[in-house]
């Protein structure tokens, strides 16, 4: 695998997810150094149970600016890659959301993430190299009922990644946004298991991780500041 950056540190935001853990294993095989963040004790336990104990693990709770600053002060190394899997989930009709839920959701997932990303990009700028992969969702452009706050924040974050790629490409930093469709993992698994029509188009964790690794590589870098949908064409049909 031809990964271009000299520094080997790959930060996985939200690394305790199924995809995050599998990605970390694959990065280790590629002789990269995954740095995994978690936001809860259960997340930490999942990482410890599934990965080598020597792996770099840091607490990072995007809900808290203090946690972000604490993380940035502790992470005393150059980051060449970032894979962003982190996003909290709320599924409620938009008009039923409490005011404080709206404030807290956008603060965590959009505002604080923007502050975090600004700092990571500055870290990458010192090395004049960096590749950021944001795992968004097809819900960003085709939301279902109840996904208003989720999809709107995903779109906002996509715009942040896009502008980073547009502004920073000249300095060796590029971004790509991946929008997986239905994945047989995580929060969607129960829903998907009941929808047989989706089965041929389902992605599994390996598909998503393979795509992430492709877009981290040299030949994936022609895709900059762009959204790519990973759905085997499911959402491209008229009758999905």
């Amino acid at each position: 695998m031809n990964l271009p950056n000299k520094e080997k540190n790959c930060l996985i935001l939200g690394g305790s997810s199924e995809i995050g853990i599998f990605l970390a294993k694959r990065l280790l095989k590629e002789k990269l150094n995954p740095i995994i963040t978690y936001s809860s004790q259960s997340g930490l336990k999942k990482i410890k149970d599934n990965l080598n104990k020597d792996i770099n693990v840091f607490k990072l709770d995007l809900a808290s600016l203090n946690s972000i600053y604490d993380f940035l002060s502790k992470i005393n190394c150059k980051i060449s890659y970032l894979v962003d899997l982190s996003h909290t989930h709320v599924e409620k009709l938009f008009a039923s959301l409490k005011d404080e839920e709206i404030v807290s959701y956008y603060t965590t997932n959009v505002i604080n993430r923007a502050i975090f990303l600004k700092n990571i990009v500055r870290n990458m700028l010192i090395q004049k190299q960096g590749r950021l992969v944001y795992i968004s969702s097809t819900a960003a452009y085709l939301p279902n009922k109840g996904q208003g706050i989720y999809s709107s924040s995903k779109l906002a974050v996509e715009a942040i990644y896009k502008i980073i790629g547009i502004e920073m490409y000249k300095k060796g930093i590029s971004t790509v946004i991946l929008r997986p469709g239905y994945i047989s993992a995580g929060r969607a698994k129960n829903f998907i298991d009941k929808k047989k029509s989706i089965f041929p188009y389902l992605l599994d964790v390996t598909d998503v991780v393979d795509a992430i690794l492709f877009f981290l590589k040299d030949n994936g870098r022609v895709f900059n500041a762009r959204e790519i949908t990973l759905d085997r064409g499911f959402f491209a049909k008229k009758d999905f």
Binding site: R122, L125, I126, E167, M168, K170, K171
Partner: peptide, 9 residues
């Protein structure tokens, strides 16, 4: 963008 890099450096 160069001034941004200068600031960071």
């Amino acid at each position: 963008i160069d001034l941004l890099e200068l600031g960071v450096s």
